[in-house]
Design a protein around this nucleic acid. Structure first.
Lengths: 228, 228, 228, 228
DNA sequence: CGGTAACCGAGACGGTACGTCGCGTCTTAGC
DNA sequence: GCTAAGACGCGACGTACCGTCTCGGTTACCG
């Protein structure tokens, strides 16, 4: 992913995806003429405004003004405020991981000690959930995704599922290594780990701590242990 | 609570709860003079509009018009659209449970078979989550609660925690009966059951089925089983 | 007028004037039970608010709050904000003239020198028109009277005509004394004096000065002079 | 002025007149992009509503709806309902005079007979004052101008003074022709003619007739006659 | 190499809803 | 039965943004 030279992940044509010349409503804009400068400015403005004033108070007009961009330039390329923010966030994440390291990105380590490996990433996830810089936009996107199925699908597909896939691969490896019962459903196992964490984060019921992450791993692994 | 026939009676004073004379912005209205008729009409209108047109398209103006009520009557008693809907939903739930049965309300049954009991309620929860009548407003409230901490706290306190408490009590009973390991943390156990379910519901990753509920219970209980 | 012991000039029954028991809409209130205390407080509050914040920003709710009076107490006795202010102003004028002197009140003096007498009162009128304490409410009432014929009639009848009558009587006396042409129309003469003054005051075209008052008298009297 | 075919062309910038970059509240809109279509529709709607339902019952919201225009389009270009009506009325007058005749517009005729000329225009003024089509908006503007100095100044400047100027010029001509005393103050003379007329109109004391106009001219001219 | 067809900044436009203010009516307690 | 108090249905206020629509200007391709 970090090897992808194209920074414009998905050109996000507002209307269709396949048809090259839509005879429909408003014809698709010419992505090759798109101003990269504006695109970046919009992302920066969107992220800044969301973290400064919150998602609800962030407006497309505000983003346009802050980015020094015409409103139409936003409406031309994105269908909604949430879509702008999602792309901005994706761009942020892409740049962050690109800055971090070359290839492995954020694959879960496999030291052979499954519990330790899971605790390591779950603790990192906890830290991220407690980091305000990530929290505000993530909450906003999650909230919007709950209500707007389309956006939710994009959110899930672009952010959530890739992350879950790391867990799935590590669980698979553990199963092959015999660390957990061979009839384990990896997907369910992943959800057992991630679900409770998200539950606490979303509903703010109890504080998210490293200790909680550890306890979670312990309990889940006990249930997955291979039976004699 | 099950003895209180109307848990949402609290008149929901917009400002403070304790201070009798708020020196703040606009002093609190006189709750004793409140029109019960308007309150009910507002709840009905809010729920109807949300389920008909969705939360985002529901407006306070629309609720007022539908309820045959002045806008100010809504703004006098609630601080936001979400707060109206929360109270409306609480009122609905209260009336529903009141209509059902006096005492037991929705305590989890204790047949002695922990797995069966849990599967029973988890299946019911799955059904509820798939019921559009409940889904739309619940999603809306959850989404709003994610972004608005105050509302989220009210949501959690009034809807989520009471529900979790049922699980907690059943788990406690199971622990006393020796069905699960004595050092089990009941709270964590509950979250292991509920977290994955919510995760699927919120992110719409995979369908919510009875089979999933059963598998969840099996996996979790295996981890909680008393060790020899 | 100052000999009238009844301070409540006109009880201002909101509906009818003659019928003692109107079977119509809202029956007339019992004026004998009326609270003099509230009436005074309302007048004071109305005048204070108008001179402080202007007529347009003065509201019935504001008057009621300032007077420590229920809104209904105002609506029971007056049909409109303008009517309240008119009565308040009349009351103020009555009290003022009562305080000043016993009988003659403000009859135009008759020293035998018509020009001097007229200049004296016209100068006094100019001073009054330039006095902010009188200007604001008078302007407000005049403005409202322009648009609202009923109120305008009351304004004219209660404030304007009595004042014009003083001029008329002095002009009549002058005619009988042979100071002006015997075929003079006194009413027109009065309007020739007062009209230009009001014109300047209302439209703020040019400043109102004593010199202007003098010049006005001179020009008008030249036209009224008895022809040889 | 009579050569300017459209005296109310000024785009009526809501804020300042000279400063090109107002540092004030909301910066001035771009007048060059203004929609002439909307401007006309607003004028038509405003005049129609005022004459149909009266000034007090005319609302900006109503004007906007009737004109098929967003409220903001009104608020962008005018500071108040009265300002809209003033411009509408000015526009109406401009179009009316434009329709009538090119050059002479409404200059007072000079037949050599001063009395006849003045009676002619004063009778015309009386007719206009009795014409409901002109009366309602004019009363409304006059009333508003009494209370609001800014609007009053605009009203005076744009409607009143130009009209008075016609009189002034005719009086000046008469003075040069020796028809009136050479030391006559033309301004005062004009006010002697117009003041009483306005007085009756504004306060509705006595009916406005041609006979009254004639009598007025006769009396005033008697005072202005050149002395032997 | 001159058209011309897009994007772009800017922002006016027709709208919808906001949250507030005040209207005039009605209800409730208190005297 | 008047009074203080104020909740109520209602209508308008003036503001904030929405998403669409021109309007020059500035590129960048194309004949």
């Amino acid at each position: 992913m970090s090897s992808d030279p194209n920074p414009s992940r998905t050109p996000q044509t507002p209307r269709t995806s396949a048809a090259p010349a839509t005879p429909g409503k408003t014809r698709a804009p010419d992505a090759s003429r798109r101003s990269e400068r504006s695109r970046r400015a919009i992302f920066d403005a969107a992220l800044a405004l969301v973290s400064e004033t919150g998602y609800a108070k962030t407006t497309i007009e505000g983003i346009a003004a802050r980015a020094g961009v015409g409103k139409q330039t936003i409406y031309r390329w994105w269908p909604s405020k949430a879509a702008v923010l999602l792309d901005a966030f994706l761009d942020l994440a892409a740049r962050a991981s690109e800055a971090l390291g070359g290839t492995a990105e954020s694959e879960i380590p496999d030291t052979g000690d499954l519990a330790a490996d899971l605790k390591y990433v779950l603790r990192a996830t906890v830290d991220e959930m407690n980091d305000p810089a990530f929290e505000v936009p993530t909450r906003a996107l999650a909230a919007e995704g709950i209500v707007d199925p389309d956006l939710g699908a994009r959110f899930t597909e672009a952010l959530l599922e890739p992350q879950l896939a790391y867990y799935t691969r590590r669980i698979e490896a553990a199963r092959r290594a015999g660390d957990i019962a061979p009839d384990t459903d990896p997907r369910l196992a992943v959800e057992l780990l991630v679900g409770p964490l998200h539950h606490r984060w979303i509903h703010r019921t109890l504080p998210l701590t490293h200790a909680y992450a550890d306890a979670l791993v312990d309990h889940v692994l006990r249930g997955l242990a291979p039976r004699p």
